[in-house]
């Protein structure tokens, strides 16, 4: 790798901005976040970028590097071709606050709509379940809320359906609750009516970018879609529901 590397970083807000060029020295093992920090410390102290753990655990530093959504703290500089500039842009799906920081508050609003975990009655007994049951939901609970999946989902990115669609992150979260061995709540109405689960046409873009390697489409979205179909579109069930209206299954 060259001693110097050129970074093109978006500087600006949601209204106007430009790609600005910075040159910084590279060190072994450097990640893109280090490079952005080096720019900040020496050339652009007011460059806005979020970060916390610097180890892929908190999901703060999501951005688009050469057009690909990445966690900046896990993105090694030596993966990019030597001598070519590296372009760093904010996530496209969310409004830019400044530079690389975007307004992701919409995600927090969606999260609030999801009914909380409700412990089923264990009749005073200590709750018990197997590691296999735990494994299934632990996969979903690994999510670090980096919102890279939200960023690439075309329902949000191209169609901006933020009023009618929850997005992969919140399908994962709902799956983690719905498949929780101790949960006693029903969120299928929410998935169908407010979170627009039907809009997802399983292109797996979300799964591809997940830094935690959660099988979002296969393990969360498809099983939830199956549950919806069972619940609302199974003709026998429909008849049963008409004959015996119940508040939940």
């Amino acid at each position: 790798m060259d001693e110097q590397v050129t970074l093109m970083i978006y500087r600006g807000d949601n209204v106007q901005g430009e790609m600005k060029e910075y040159k910084i020295p590279v060190a072994p093992g450097m990640v893109v976040l280090d490079a952005v920090h080096a720019v900040q410390a020496t050339q652009a102290p007011d460059l806005a970028v979020r970060w916390n753990c610097k180890a892929g655990k908190c999901g703060s530093c999501g951005a688009e590097v050469n057009g690909r959504p990445r966690l900046l703290c896990m993105d090694r500089m030596d993966k990019y071709p030597a001598g070519e500039p590296i372009a760093v842009k904010p996530l496209k799906t969310f409004p830019v606050i400044k530079d690389l920081a975007t307004n992701v508050s919409w995600n927090y609003d969606v999260n609030k709509k999801i009914p909380a975990f409700k412990m089923r009655d264990t009749k005073g007994e200590e709750p018990r379940f197997s590691q296999e049951e735990a494994d299934r939901v632990q996969e979903f609970r690994k999510c670090i809320e980096c919102f890279l999946c939200q960023n690439v989902c075309h329902v949000l990115r191209e169609h901006d359906e933020k009023n009618t669609f929850g997005g992969p992150r919140f399908f994962v979260r709902t799956a983690g609750l719905e498949m929780h061995p101790l949960d006693d709540e029903n969120r299928l109405d929410l998935l169908k009516d407010q979170m627009g689960l039907g809009y997802c046409n399983i292109t797996k873009c979300c799964t591809e970018v997940c830094p935690e390697s959660i099988a979002i489409t296969d393990n969360a979205i498809i099983p939830l879609k199956e549950r919806l179909v069972d619940q609302y579109y199974d003709p026998l069930r429909k008849l049963y529901r008409i004959l015996f209206p119940a508040k939940k299954t």
């Binding site: 900040q40 102290p45 007011d46 460059l47 806005a48 970028v49 606050i97 400044k98 530079d99 920081a101």
Partner: peptide, 9 residues
Amino acid sequence: GGNIQFNPG
């Protein structure tokens, strides 16, 4: 430098 908006420096 810059202004008071999201200014880590």
